[in-house]
Design a protein around this nucleic acid. Structure first.
Lengths: 136, 136
DNA sequence: CAGCATCCCACGCGATACTG
DNA sequence: CAGTATCGCGTGGGATGCTG
């Protein structure tokens, strides 16, 4: 099991600002708003039609769903299949690249399940004992 | 060993919409804009002053840096220490909770290093062979 | 059904200037 | 140094209405 020295980062990171924070690009790709529910749904429930995703995610509007699906398709995380029928039918499925996010999502889910409460608690503590940002 | 059935999700997820996508809350907490560079910097280089972070991240403005640091402090991911001196000195360090993101960030960095090229390639392929979204 | 077009609005960010 | 205050704007998202 190789792959050492991703953490902590190498000395290059110390000097080359371009190498700083290798994960920030992921923010726009997989952590834009609505993208994780979409990927999660496709990864969990498999190939789905547009309206299925729309109903599953519930509060999303079709416009935004289309936008995010286009982005995910462009980034190679989702595959769109158009069936020229009447009425038209379009199916979305997660790609191989998208599927490679699986372990990562599992990891994220574990962290969320174990630590989200702590975040909530920290927020409550901060909110009722910090009128200003003074450090007592 | 252990920790099974986070992936794939349980049957509850199928029926209870509230359980859908357990990782989407993380988007606002750790994947807001500028948060990953901040956490990365604090995790990598340890305790730092405000101006150190400002210089390290370079393109961030002090206003936004303050906003994100406040949010991270409120969420319990970062600890702020104020030293009443002249000139004033404030130090930020990652908290225990924030440090628990370490393995996650390493995981994310691995994925980024191995798959970011694929995303770039997919984008190029999409851009010059898809004038409209027809599915030939 | 699966969208696109349009209008509108709020928020987040950037730039600038100013304090304790 | 470590912020705060203010202004302005661009982008993303919501709502609505309309097509093939």
């Amino acid at each position: 099991m190789g792959n050492e020295s991703i953490w902590p980062p190498s000395a290059d990171v110390m000097t080359n600002p371009e190498l700083a924070c290798p994960i920030s690009p992921l923010t726009d790709i997989v952590f834009s708003k609505w993208t994780t529910p979409i990927l999660w749904s496709l990864h969990t429930f498999g190939r789905q039609r547009f309206v299925e995703l729309e109903r599953r995610i519930k509060t999303i509007t079709p416009k935004v769903l289309t936008q995010r699906l286009r982005q995910l398709e462009r980034d190679g995380l989702v595959v769109r299949t158009y069936h020229p029928e009447v009425p038209p039918r379009v199916e979305y499925e997660i790609s191989e690249l998208g599927r490679s996010l699986g372990p990562l999502f599992a990891h994220l889910a574990v962290w969320a399940n174990t630590n989200l409460d702590n975040v909530e608690q920290a927020r409550r503590h901060y909110d009722n004992a910090a009128p200003a940002h003074d450090a007592r």
